Simulated assay, not measured.
Amino acid sequence: MKFSEFQVGAVITHPPVVVTEEEMLAFAKLYDPQWFHVDVERAKEGRWGGLIASGWLTCSMAMRMAVDSALHDSESFGSPGLEKLRWQAPVRPGDALRLEASVDSKRISSSRDDLGIIRWSWRMINQRDEQVLELEATSLFDLGGASA
């Protein structure tokens, strides 16, 4: 989507993607090797009653879904960060996660007329309609035509 296509109040969605145990383990071994993410047997005895995905994997999946559903052909060139990040429920092998991203605000920078700014809220929801992730992101768009 181009910056001009984003509308305040719009909800951008991505269909469910199934999280596999193999994907969870591979990600966690590289980036978040805590026992409840990487040790299947020990995780069965832990607080969560089984293996759970790293929250950072959930964030990465949300980012991929946002790119696929909105940012892939846009003028987006980065983000100054997030305002809020919450992991609300554990993600388990076999969960099917979908993205719902609500456009909260859209504006042109007051100091640069070639800079578009979108603030949006992302939610990841599993197949039981439980929200597992919530974040508020800001995305920056080059409206001056500079190439990436």
Results as ranks from 00 to 15, higher is better:
G49A: 10
G50C: 08
G50F: 02
L51K: 03
L51W: 04
L51H: 02
A53H: 00
A53N: 01
G55S: 08
T58W: 00
S60P: 01
S60K: 04
M61G: 01
A62Q: 01
A62H: 00
M63D: 03
M63L: 07
R64S: 07
R64T: 07
M65W: 01
A66C: 10
V67A: 10
D68W: 13
D68L: 13
D68Q: 12
S69I: 13
S69A: 15
A70N: 03
L71Y: 14
L71T: 09
D73C: 13
S74A: 12
E75Q: 15
S79T: 14
S79A: 09
S79N: 15
P80E: 11
P80A: 06
G81R: 13
L82M: 14
E83A: 08
E83N: 13
K84R: 13
L85M: 14
L85G: 03
W87I: 05
Q88P: 03
Q88I: 10
A89K: 15
V91M: 02
P93D: 10
P93V: 05
P93T: 08
G94W: 12
D95K: 02
D95A: 10
D95S: 12
A96V: 03
R98T: 03
R98G: 07
E100G: 07
A101K: 01
A101L: 08
A101I: 00
V103N: 11
S105R: 10
K106L: 04
K106T: 07
K106N: 11
K106W: 01
S109Q: 11
S110L: 10
S110D: 14
R112T: 06
R112G: 04
G116T: 05
G116P: 01
I117V: 12
I118S: 04
R119F: 02
R119A: 06
W120I: 04
W122A: 04
W122R: 08
R123T: 09
R123C: 04
M124Y: 02
M124F: 06
M124R: 01
I125R: 00
N126K: 03
N126P: 06
Q127S: 08
R128F: 12
R128Y: 07
E130C: 12
Q131R: 14
Q131H: 07
L133A: 05
L133T: 05
E134W: 09
L135Y: 01
E136I: 08
A137L: 06
A137R: 00
A137H: 01
S139N: 15
L140N: 03
